[in-house]
Amino acid sequence: MEKSGPRHWALAAFFALFVLFLYGPTVTIVILSFQGPDGGLTFPMRGFSLHWFANLFQPQMVGDFGGSFERSLALAMIVMGLTVLISLGAGLAFRRRFFGATALFYLTIAGLIVPSILISLGIGLMFNVAGIPPNWWSSALGAHLTWTLPFGVLIMFAVFNRFDHSLEEAAQDLGASPWQVFRHVVLPLIAPSLVGVALFGFSLSYDEFSRTIMAAGSDNTLPLEIFAMTTNVTTPVLYALGSLTTAFSLGLVVLVLVLVLGMRRRRRAAAG
C-alpha cells in the first residue's frame, strides 16, 4: 500500500531481524552439530565432521533415542489420523445448529487455554485413581488430542465459514445424494485444508512436551528423551539430535506445502 519510504525500509529491516531471531539459533546448532570430535557446545568449530551424527546411532548412546523416536512417530501418526477425522466430523456438525454446540465450542477452546501442566497432571491423576498404568498410546494420546483438536476444529471452522454453499446446492439440484455431495463436492474442495490439519496434528504431537511429561508412563517420547538429555549430555550429540529432528519437521512442512500447491494446480487445471 505504502510506497517505499524510510518507514517502509525500517519495517522491512525489523522484519528481517525478526526472521533472523527466529531461525538464527537453529541454524547455529545445525552448524555446531558438525563439530569435530574434540569440539564443544559453543564456537569455535574444532574441525568439521559427522562424528556426532555417527555417535547418535551407536548402540551405547545415552538414553533410548531409537525407541523414543519410534514411539513418537507412531503416536504422531495416530494423533494425525484421529485429529483429521474428529475435526472434520466436528467441522461438518458445526455447520448446522445442534443442541450443545456452544458448550462443545467452548470446551474445544478450553483445550487451548487450560495450561498444559494441568492437562498433564489431570490425566496422570485420572489414570492413577483409576488404577490404570499410563502409556504413550493411551494417556499421552489423549493429552496430545486436547492440544491438536482445537487447532483442527478452528481450521475447519475457518474453512467452512468461507465455503460456498451454492456448489452443494447445485449438486443437490442435480440429484446428488448427501453422501455424493460430500464425497464429490465438499471433500475435494476442503482436501488441502485437511492436509493442513494433518500436518498440525502430526507436528504438534511429534514435538509435544509439557502435556506428555506426566502422561507418558514409563516409555519416553522423543521430546521427553531430548529434555532428559539436556541435563546430562554436554556434547554436540545433543545438537546432532536437534538438527535431525528439526530437519524431519521442516521436511514434512515442505512436503505438505508441495502437496497442497500440487492439489491447487491440478484443480485449477481441471477447472480451466
Binding site: L22, Y23, G24, P25, T26, T28, I29, L32, L41, T42, F43, L199, F200, S203, L204, Y206, D207, F209, P223, I226, F227, T230, L238, Y239, G242, T245, T246, S249, L250, L252, V253
Partner: peptide, 16 residues
Amino acid sequence: PFLTSNVIRMISWIPF
C-alpha cells in the same frame, strides 16, 4: 517454527 520442537529451540540458545 511453531511446527518444530520447543525444547530444541530452547537448546539452540546455548551457543549464543
